[in-house]
């Protein structure tokens, strides 16, 4: 038996929630170890900034948690393939899926692009040393991009690195699995922003909290996400999730922070207001998405 997951057209956040996640959820329910699932990206024409990182996690979930054999059909659009290749998507897709190696030969020419707006290509994090190499990489390669395009001063760049480091350390400290990080410099509504996407395919925030505090077993995913975004809970454990500290940094800069875990999604607006959506399709792990604007 094989199952086909078709992803086509423009993949925005809404499309991803409405059309793509349900397909993966369905696959997770019906597939058994050893069965084949085809992830067909051939009709893909546009992908949102955090989609490549999320896709790797979704495919990783099917391959490792379900035990399915994942076959990836790359996009026919040269533009989309080139974009994904510049992010190193196919390198990391190779860890969890099989695809045509001839395709790789055709697109490897797109690997480097001087005009690329990628601050940090996709990096896979399995252990704490991964966080170290990412910070080091950003200090060496990302510093100038952040400083010149977003006008961050050294203290602000350090706080930016703190956000990335804490999110990466969360993967190794709490998720019990691996994750990926992707940082891009984008133009959003004609304003330059940095978009940080950190996604893991771990146990999720609720399970992580439940291990230390039994009372969170009865709470919703949204309640658990909101708990770690507020001061207090991290202090008790002495082993902080760091999301409260990240929220403080993001709010100070009037940035936007979205956390998706389990069936919940909570986001912090530019005015530091909390919003939430619950009863979404199950997301296997945690997805933190942060947008930081240009500094004055």
């Amino acid at each position: 038996m094989s199952l086909v997951i078709t992803i086509k057209g423009k993949v925005t956040e809404q499309v991803y929630e409405r059309e793509i996640l349900p397909q993966f959820e369905h696959a997770r329910k019906i597939l058994h170890a050893g069965q084949i699932v085809v992830v067909d990206l051939s009709g893909l024409s546009f992908v949102g900034p955090s989609f490549p990182a999320v896709m790797l996690i979704m495919m990783g979930d099917l391959a490792e948690n379900v035990g399915a054999k994942v076959l990836l059909v790359p996009p026919e659009s040269q533009y989309t393939s080139a974009y994904l290749e510049r992010l190193d998507f196919f390198t990391y897709a190779g860890f969890v899926a099989d695809f045509d190696t001839a395709f790789m030969l055709n697109i490897s020419k797109y690997k480097e692009n001087k005009n690329s707006r990628t601050i940090l290509k996709i990096n896979r994090i399995c252990e704490e040393s991964g966080a170290r190499s990412i910070v080091n990489n950003l200090l060496i390669h990302g510093y100038d991009i952040i400083s010149s395009n977003l006008h961050y001063n050294p203290v602000e760049i350090d706080q930016f690195l703190q956000i990335v480091a804490e999110l990466c350390l969360n993967i190794t400290d709490h998720s019990e699995s691996w994750g990926v990080v992707l940082i891009q410099y984008l133009s959003y509504l004609a304003r330059p922003i940095v978009r940080i996407s950190v996604v893991d395919k771990g146990i999720g925030i609720k399970s992580s909290l439940f291990k230390k505090y039994a009372e969170y077993g009865n709470k919703s995913d949204c309640d658990c996400i909101k708990a770690v975004l507020r001061e207090g809970i991290t202090r008790k454990s002495g082993h902080p999730l760091g999301l409260f500290a990240i929220r403080c940094f993001v709010s100070r800069w009037h940035g936007v922070m979205k956390i998706r875990s389990g069936t919940g999604k909570v986001w912090i607006t530019e005015n530091n207001k909390e919003k939430q959506v619950s009863r979404l399709i199950m997301f296997p792990g945690t997805h933190a998405d942060i947008q930081l604007p240009l500094q004055n």
């Binding site: 966080a131 910070v135 350090d158 690195l161 703190q162 480091a165 804490e166 350390l169 902080p240 760091g242």
Partner: peptide
């Protein structure tokens, strides 16, 4: 030291 993660600073403060 060029960079020290906030979680690690907290360990030193503890």
């Amino acid at each position: 030291i060029n960079f020290i993660a906030l979680s690690m600073i907290k360990q030193i403060i503890y």
